[in-house]
């Protein structure tokens, strides 16, 4: 099956199996390994990317469903020299430890800030319920999102 999509601003047309997932396309075909897989029941959020401007679990989107879509991954939001404000806030606030959940968490957090008014601590905690982190206890993630909110 042929899938045409834009990923991080670059156009791709790829031949993939009908049962390929978006996350497999990203990781295995485009070598964008920043998007992680942490579970098999669509619960952990490590695989969150933006598809047509919305945060989605790329492990729960078939590659075919992404045909024609504009996808942004963790690799597409900033670079080491020009970090996205959310990336910067995560580093500044020590909002990551092992780093495995971090790409999904950052992508979810960006979407949360972009789609919310009056984001306070409770709203951040509520808004991140789709992303599991086992290291940080969420404390510093919440601080980071609130800090990035003011810089985005």
């Amino acid at each position: 099956m042929e899938v045409t999509l834009t990923v991080n601003g670059a156009d791709h047309t790829l031949d993939v199996p009908d049962n390929a997932l978006l996350v497999e396309l990203l990781r295995e075909r485009l070598n964008l390994t920043g998007t992680h897989v942490g579970c098999d029941t669509s619960q952990c959020g490590a695989c969150v990317v933006h598809m047509d401007g919305r945060a989605v679990k790329s492990c729960t989107v078939l590659a075919g469903q992404a045909d024609g879509a504009d996808v942004t991954t963790i690799e597409g939001i900033g670079t080491a020299d020009a970090l996205h404000p959310m990336q910067e806030a995560f580093r500044e606030c020590h909002a990551l430890q092992c780093g495995f959940c971090t790409p999904g968490m950052i992508m979810a957090a960006i979407d949360l800030v972009q789609t919310s008014d009056d984001l306070d601590e409770a709203a951040v905690r509520d808004g991140l319920e789709g992303n599991l982190c086992r290291c940080t206890g969420y404390h510093n993630i919440v601080r980071a999102v609130l800090s990035a909110r003011d810089n985005m």
Binding site: D40, T41, S42, V61, L62, G64, Q65
Partner: peptide, 26 residues
């Protein structure tokens, strides 16, 4: 039929369903 896939795709991933064809309504 496939709508948003929030239940169907996890079910497929776990090999709990084996349809021959998935028809996306999007």
């Amino acid at each position: 039929f496939l709508a948003g896939g929030m239940t169907l795709i996890p079910t497929l991933k776990q090999r709990l369903a084996a349809p021959t064809d998935v028809v996306d309504l999007a």
